[in-house]
Design a protein around this nucleic acid. Structure first.
Lengths: 260, 260
DNA sequence: ACAACATTTGGACGGCGTACAGCAAGAGTT
DNA sequence: AACTCTTGCTGTACGCCGTCCAAATGTTGT
């Protein structure tokens, strides 16, 4: 009497689950950096022989893939799914949530951008972003392009940010990282470059939430400028002392793409 | 008595140079993917014992660092140094040159974004970009922020692009990559997502020069929209003889990242 | 009970980065 | 020229890596 779906596999019960393996891998990654997520280390942490991992994943690449999917699946979708809020704030919330969630596991970020993000969670994220931009009034083509632009910006920012700290383990707090960068850049001679001191200060501030949100804001400005030149301004506008609302880019802006 | 600069080292002549090692590493990287740049492989290619590499570089990380520097040093600075052209075209030329140059060595791109880009060539690139944006009329703070935004976009785009192809060796031509992506995305069921066919086509087109330039254009739109709506006719601006200190605010942003 | 199968394990193979000791080769000194 | 000192390269070895293979163990179906 074998229920076709319930048919328990022939052999002995498995000692663990895929999720335990992925969790162990993530823990090792957080503790020891990207180098520490070895099959042997994972197996030792969950208490099995090194090659027992191959019962659950065909090879290490599959473990990494599953790990990335698990990480992407952990982003809180509710923060930006509230369609009552203005869409710009929803995008900002998504970007901040992604950055916070991924920066909490800096060792996993190089593995993420090292391989193709094809998994269901990556597709779901893209899909949600597409819908969000479509809600904002963009046509499907622009929504798709803007979606990828935002993905590139978010993941590129996070990648450059976590790549900037050379030590393993969790990321130091933002202020400490900026201070370290400041010291590093001011120590470098910067042979003959103008304004080395203030340049060091500026480049140190690259890895800040403020820079992150500034770049995101400029991208959203550029995306909305051409599609809805008047309908925005609902979300938080310019934050600095620019007097002009800047309706359209200057005369150089009309130069289009080499459109195929 | 020996001239202090001419003082040849005491021991026997070195069999090779650092550049030969880096070139061999780059060749291996191009042929066999990021995995193939092993110290032993490099040594075998240049015809020495595996540990002879450590005469020239202290460890493998130094080889990678030198390799990245060599790659960044290979970008043609003349394409965007022409200050007669409008600055937007100069930025586009820089972005295209960087993409072409780095995409020619896809195996090296993960190594590039895997570590901090602190080298002199990276700093020089940043510095040139800063000056270019300052020429465009941006104040130092916005120029610094826009410079990093552009760097994030360029390197993030290239990283996602080369990470999309799973096989080693040189990148297939763009059309082939798009076709492959199209097939992959249309094969995926995309469970219940709206517009799977056109979504697949749109996502396949992400890895195209057109998408790349579109995103770059939106970023430049967003950057220029708020800072110089009128003043940037030509790049022949003031020489920025006395740049104000680009006080980049420090750890002012409080949201987002903290570890653990 | 028996057979079929999944799971896990011990062991091994090749490759990796790299440390250590020894040997060859050139420069400086006598 | 002989000696020494410094430097470059090699042989060897250690520990770690990912992964395969054969055997042992446990579980289900007949």
């Amino acid at each position: 009497m074998s229920v076709p779906g319930m048919r328990r596999r022939r052999g002995p019960c498995r000692a663990l689950t895929e999720d335990e393996i992925l969790e162990a891998a993530l823990d090792l990654l957080d503790e020891g950096g990207p180098h520490a997520a070895s099959v042997r280390g994972i197996a030792a942490r969950v208490g099995v022989a090194p090659n027992a991992v191959y019962t659950y994943f065909p090879d290490k690449a599959a473990v990494i893939k599953g790990l990335v999917e698990r990480l992407l699946g952990g982003v809180d979708h509710d923060v930006f799914a509230d369609r009552e809020q203005p869409w710009r704030q929803r995008v900002e919330a998504l970007a901040l949530e992604l950055r916070a969630h991924l920066s909490a596991h800096p060792g996993a970020v190089p593995l993420m951008i090292g391989g193709p993000m094809n998994g269901p969670q990556a597709l779901a994220l893209n899909e949600r972003l597409l819908q969000l931009l479509a809600d904002a009034g963009l046509n499907p083509t622009d929504a798709a392009r803007a979606s990828y632009l935002l993905i590139v910006y978010v993941f590129g920012s996070i990648a450059l940010e976590v790549a900037d700290v050379h030590q393993a383990g969790p990321l130091p707090p933002e202020s400490e990282r900026i201070t370290t960068r400041e010291a590093a850049f001011s120590a470098t001679p910067t042979e003959g470059f103008p304004g080395s001191a203030e340049a060091a200060a500026a480049m140190a501030g690259y890895v800040s939430t403020e820079q992150y949100l500034w770049g995101l804001g400029r991208i959203l400005d550029g995306v909305t400028a051409r599609v809805a030149p008047l309908a925005n301004l609902t979300a938080r506008g310019a934050t600095t002392d620019d007097p002009e609302p800047a309706e359209m880019p200057g005369p150089a802006g009309r130069r289009g793409i080499h459109s195929a």
